[in-house]
Simulated assay, not measured.
Amino acid sequence: MIQTRDTQYFEHLLDKHRLKKTAPRLRVLSMMSSRNTATSQPDLENLMHDIDRVTLYRILSAFEEKGIIHKVFDLNGTANYALCSSNCTEHHHHDEHLHFNCVQCKNVYCLNDMNLPAINLPAGFEPQGFTIYANGLCPKCSKKAVKK
């Protein structure tokens, strides 16, 4: 098997987070990195028939706990997962970016490059993170709507 730069990166990522380099873990990382949207466990199950539901659940749980992926909810309340930035750790996720839910195709996008407003909480509140959602049409669905 030829090792790609991605495979080497994923192996390094698993080493960094003290996780065993197993074929299912490497496949999940590869699948998630190939997508431009957050992905639910049921969608991953449909794409990866050779990994059973329990194994996939355990992989996603371990990845979230270690700061490799973060969870974001879609319009139906379903958990979706996306790769974290390289500065996320086991103790703190840095997923404070805009999560965009497309109302047409139902995809969830992590918009990492958006400038977000400062959040000033009242005295006594200690934030440990925050999530900001926006709803609307993604570029692909916007183009389809204009053509109609």
Rank of each mutant, 00 (worst) to 15 (best):
I132T: 09
D50L: 07
I2R: 08
N107S: 14
G67D: 03
I132L: 15
E65A: 14
M114C: 09
V54H: 09
P42D: 11
N76E: 14
E64I: 01
V72H: 01
Y9K: 14
H17T: 04
L116V: 02
S85R: 15
G136R: 04
I59F: 01
G67A: 08
H92L: 11
E11G: 08
N107D: 15
F73R: 09
V103M: 13
I51W: 03
T4C: 05
L14F: 05
N36D: 14
A118T: 13
I59N: 00
M114E: 10
N120D: 13
R35E: 08
Q128S: 10
A23C: 01
H94Q: 14
I132M: 11
R58A: 08
T7G: 00
V103Y: 03
V108H: 05
L13D: 01
D95V: 05
K147A: 15
N112G: 10
N36R: 12
P127A: 13
P122R: 06
N107G: 03
T7I: 13
D74N: 15
N135K: 14
L137C: 06
E90T: 08
K140L: 09
I68C: 02
N46W: 04
E64L: 06
Y109Q: 06
P122A: 07
Q128C: 03
E96Y: 06
Q128R: 06
P117T: 01
P127G: 07
N107I: 02
H94N: 14
C141M: 06
I68P: 00
N87F: 10
L47V: 04
P127Q: 11
K16P: 00
T7P: 00
E64D: 10
Y9F: 13
F130D: 07
C141F: 10
L83N: 02
V54W: 05
K147S: 13
Q8M: 10
R27P: 00
L98M: 12
Q104L: 11
A23N: 06
H94A: 12
L98S: 02
C105E: 07
N112V: 10
L14Q: 03
N87V: 09
E65F: 07
R35Y: 05
A145D: 12
K20W: 04
D74Y: 03
F100C: 06
E90C: 04
N101Y: 03
